[in-house]
């Protein structure tokens, strides 16, 4: 299976390594031509404002949006979650997202880098030990639509539990970085779910 990794900016290499280890065929996607033959898509961590600008300048926004609207499986982590959501809070006023998963997402919801953290998550449907998760200037979900399954939550800076791992059909969104913790069960779940 050819899995595109959106390679405009961010931790593309880590996602590509995990996908290759799990037997998928990762392909870096920087231009519309790179989308040809891609069966699924990973939107990595990075700066969502930068990636958003580069989606426009590269001409990728429309063809990638069309593929997502047709139901292409997608995994978004951190900035990738922001890009897949329906609505973005605390973003730039002109920031557009794909609306591939029915979420309202708040950027940098835990605060600045000094508040970035690691923790263990209980994930619905994952067998075995807790999932170790790395949160870096992470977003949280403020609203999850009725079609969205919430698989894991953590308390935000106000102590309110917020979803951080969500699935809607073949689209999976994580506020944290499953590509950084050495535990690949989120990627396995994504690859198995298509």
């Amino acid at each position: 299976m050819k899995v595109g990794v959106l390679a405009l900016q961010g931790d593309v290499r880590e996602h590509s390594q995990v996908l290759a280890e799990l037997g998928a065929h990762p392909v870096a996607v920087r231009t519309p031509e790179d989308l040809t033959g891609v069966d699924a898509m990973v939107l990595p961590g990075g700066e969502s404002t930068t990636i958003s600008m580069l989606l426009d300048s590269s001409g990728l926004r429309r063809p990638l949006g069309a593929r997502l609207a047709e139901g292409m499986p997608a995994l978004g982590t951190c900035a990738g979650m922001v890009l897949l959501a329906t609505e973005v809070l605390d973003g730039r006023p002109d920031q557009e997202s794909f609306g591939a998963i029915d979420l309202t997402v708040r950027r940098n919801a835990f605060g600045r880098q000094v508040a970035s953290f690691e923790t263990d998550l209980d994930v619905a449907g994952l067998s075995g030990e807790a999932l170790h998760a790395v949160f870096i200037r992470a977003p949280v979900v403020e609203r999850a639509g009725p079609a969205v399954e919430v698989l894991a939550s953590v308390a935000d800076s106000q102590g309110v539990p917020r979803p951080v791992l969500c699935r809607q059909g073949v689209v999976v969104a994580a506020a944290f970085h499953p590509e950084l913790s050495g535990d690949w069960r989120v990627h396995e779940m994504f690859l198995a779910g298509r």
Partner: peptide, 30 residues
């Protein structure tokens, strides 16, 4: 805020090498 909010969960660890290097990894290609 000038200082981070108090850690709401005791099982949460800040300032690790993983999160420090992690932000640099997110800036790649930028």
């Amino acid at each position: 805020e000038a200082t981070p909010a108090p850690n709401p969960a005791p099982d949460r660890v800040t300032g690790t090498s993983r999160v420090k290097r992690g932000l640099a990894e997110m800036l790649r290609g930028g």
